[in-house]
Design a protein around this nucleic acid. Structure first.
Lengths: 111, 111
DNA sequence: GCACTATTTCGACAAATCTAGAATTAGTTC
DNA sequence: GAACTAATTCTAGATTTGTCGAAATAGTGC
């Protein structure tokens, strides 16, 4: 019974850490099939347990998906969730979220 | 000497709290001149000190601006920062941030 | 300056988060 | 099943965050 605001907040919070944002960037840049956790660990140069902790946070927020391939786990970005989140944030910023104020806010005016 | 990733993470983190997200929504929906802190307090029905704390967090992240008007402080959304943030997040999600992977990720494909 | 209102800052406590070494689980290969 | 690799879970300590009452500050009007 988690509301829209709560869910969006949870996901934004999950993105609100330099390491997790870096992880997501790598995943987006990596192959569509996903990037092995070990490769992330090597690239980011952090302890495996720390990485695993952050990956779990991202997965809990439905921002990344996992698939096992032998002994390695491949992580990849969940573009559906990411798109929904950016759209929500955008509407929050531009239209005030609800429908009771149809005209766009100044945020939308691009010069 | 704060990098782009760190700054984006700080701002996403600031948005990553239900109350702060609700505050921002109210500000976006409110008048362009800004919404008095007292009005936010009444609407959200939370202690003034708690609200002030969250407003400070949003202000520290440059997500909101303040202007004094007599004894009241009017808060309003900083659309410039919000737009930059959503754009950064969007590019992070769609193009991998850097220029070493020009073609868009599946995230951009809208059906 | 005094009373009054609006809002912030201080202080304290509980709860959540971050980090990372150690132990454990999952899977493969022989 | 033993040895090996990949990754997670456990555990603990340090730090940060969230909450909110009490006290302080900023501004207005008499």
């Amino acid at each position: 019974m988690t509301g829209r605001v709560e869910q969006a907040a949870e996901r934004l919070k999950a993105l609100g850490h330099p390491l997790r944002l870096s992880i997501l960037r790598r995943l987006v840049q990596g192959p569509e099939a996903g990037t092995p956790a070990g490769e992330l660990q090597t690239r980011l140069d952090i302890p495996a347990s720390t990485l695993s902790h952050h990956l779990a946070t991202l997965a809990d927020a439905d921002l990344v998906l996992v698939a096992r391939e032998g002994t390695t786990l491949r992580y990849r970005a969940d573009y559906g969730t990411l798109r929904a989140l950016t759209e929500y944030l955008w509407q929050d910023c531009c239209a005030g979220g609800a429908a009771d104020d149809p005209q766009p806010s100044p945020c939308c005016r691009r010069d």
